[in-house]
């Protein structure tokens, strides 16, 4: 069997039974069920997340899209009695058998409400690098600037890096959180309704930012805002009552959905 270098790297770490992992695929879930205690929240989800693309997950409240997102970096583990069944792969590796700390370094997350640490702007960005053992100030300073530039925040904060992150506006705080997640150079970034607490102008800035970050990492965004999905995402998945109803290119989902439920939702007939 002839392998590319990319494939041989991933298959070397993957279980022997896994077939060669396509290089344009970042993550894949198959037959994924999820339970909160005795209550089932997800039913047999199968979904592929392509490298360097933005995948949006839409659906009404409580449909399981955030639950699914929180499986991808195993954040569900903070909830007692939460239990997935099924398979999720990251570059051909089963995420449930990876070390959780290592997995979260590779798959970052941005939350619904901006959650900067009660530290300075600099220390917020440097946090993830410091816990990874980087402590040379010059290296940290470079990384902080690079991350803030990527998050389009550098120009606004470069003169106040040592001020508290709480002094920033809500939109700036959310871009700070994105910069903080980017600083550890994750392969994928999960965004859980990152604009739901922001006004339209701050939202537009974040959307532009996500678009520019596509070359840097793969993104999965959960959103309530269908226009947002249509604007930023390459692929869109529609969730309803714990099931993935439809998954396709964003244009297809929004123009010619195959399923009646999808059409009803995106045309605003429910949800």
């Amino acid at each position: 069997m002839v392998k590319t270098t990319e494939e041989s790297r991933s298959t070397a770490r993957a279980p022997a039974t896994t077939p060669a992992w396509p290089s344009d695929l970042k993550m894949r879930a198959t037959g994924l069920d999820f339970y909160y205690g005795g209550r089932q929240a997800l039913y047999s989800i199968g979904l592929q997340i392509l490298t360097g693309r933005i995948t949006a997950l839409i659906g009404p409240s409580g449909c399981g899209k955030t639950t699914f997102l929180r499986i991808l970096n195993r954040m569900y583990e903070t909830v007692p009695h939460a239990r997935p069944e099924g398979e999720v792969f990251l570059d051909g590796e089963d995420i449930f058998s990876l070390d959780v700390v290592g997995l979260r370094r590779r798959v970052g997350m941005v939350f619904q409400k901006p959650n900067p640490f009660p530290k300075s702007i600099f220390d917020n960005i440097a946090y993830g690098l410091r816990v990874n053992g980087m402590d040379r100030h010059s290296t940290l300073a470079e990384a902080v600037e690079r991350s803030l530039r990527r998050a389009a925040l550098w120009e606004e904060v470069k003169d106040q890096l040592h001020k508290s992150a709480y002094a920033l506006s809500g939109g700036q705080q959310q871009r700070l959180c994105i910069a903080r997640a980017l600083a550890v150079e994750p392969e994928a970034l999960l965004l859980d309704e990152p604009c739901s607490a922001l006004d339209p102008i701050a939202t537009a800035k974040i959307e532009e930012l996500l678009f520019n970050l596509k070359d840097l990492c793969t993104m999965v965004i959960v959103t309530h805002n269908m226009q947002q999905a249509a604007r930023v995402a390459d692929y869109t998945g529609f969730f309803l009552m714990g099931r993935l109803i439809e998954f396709n290119k964003t244009a297809v989902i929004f123009k010619t959905p195959a399923r009646k439920e999808t059409e009803d939702y995106i045309t605003g007939r429910f949800g």
């Binding site: 970096n73 903070t78 700390v101 979260r104 939350f111 959650n115 640490f117 009660p118 946090y127 816990v131």
Partner: peptide, 15 residues
């Protein structure tokens, strides 16, 4: 201390 701060740190790959 809000749980969101803990999640923020855990999501960066912090033990």
């Amino acid at each position: 201390v809000p749980g969101t701060l803990r999640e923020g740190a855990l999501a960066l790959g912090t033990s």
